[in-house]
Design a protein around this nucleic acid. Structure first.
Lengths: 145, 145
DNA sequence: CTGTATCCTTAGGGATACTG
DNA sequence: CAGTATCCCTAAGGATACAG
């Protein structure tokens, strides 16, 4: 079975393939919530992804349109990875996931940062989404200058 | 790396493990949108899941609290699988996934039923979620009687 | 009808060493 | 710094036949 067959009756599976891979998911987290942008910064995440796997995942995320790869204008020996529109479009989904986890798996450990995010979300969900989006756009833009 | 480590800084990954497995995801689709409830009906989905895999996935979904298994009161030789609260709690997420797919992968094929769902969602998202939830609850309850 | 039991096969995780 | 190149290994997919 391939992805195309699946999607023919289940559009949500296109999202699922991305979100279902734990490494791709971690990269998304790093990019969206932690504002990381370089190979080295992803590699140094505490989850210890192997270099070969990271490279494979980055290429795959580029292929499927979730990442753009560019040379760092400030350091020609460096590359930076920036989120695309469709990546930014995932934010509402990620927020719903956080809410679901909070409600149905409340005993799980959670970082202070994510806990703080949840409070903001409960206070004003749309504002949190907007804020997160703006913060990413600011980063991406400043990287381009 | 195990799931627990991941979750320590990323609550959304708990959802991801479920949604990332294509077979589990299909079973969720069958249960939530197509109101299937028996082993045989899952097996006959056009995606052709192998019996051994279906059994494994059903057991795993039960373990993680997404499915309840009961004897069919009308037919003692039969079992029925019903969604739990945490499964029903996924509906808003699935809706967001459909919206994302529609926006960022609009050229993908989609069934008429799902297309109709999307129209309802655009017209009134909350109402669609509510409707879907109620329909499932009605099925689950009628199964119990 | 609802599964198990086998058996085969492959994709992909993971570690480590090395290169432009 | 940003990756390749290997190599190993096991988890999981998939097909088919059989059983309670």
């Amino acid at each position: 079975m391939n992805l195309h067959e699946l999607r023919s009756d289940c559009p949500i599976n296109y999202v699922s393939e991305l979100l279902g891979d734990k490494w791709s998911f971690l990269i998304m987290r790093d990019i969206i919530f932690l504002h990381k942008s370089s190979y080295g910064s992803f590699l140094s995440s505490k989850e210890k992804i192997a270099p070969s796997i990271l490279a494979r995942r980055l290429a795959s995320l580029q292929d499927s349109g979730f990442l753009r790869k560019q040379r760092d204008p400030e350091n020609k020996a460096k590359y930076i990875y920036t989120p695309t529109d469709q990546t930014i479009g995932l934010i509402p989904l990620l927020v719903d996931m956080m809410l679901w986890s909070e409600q149905y798996a409340p005993s799980l450990p959670i970082s202070e940062e994510r806990q703080a995010d949840l409070q903001k979300i409960h206070y004003n969900k749309e504002a949190f989404i907007h804020e997160t989006r703006e913060r990413i756009l600011a980063h991406v833009t400043s990287d381009k200058i």
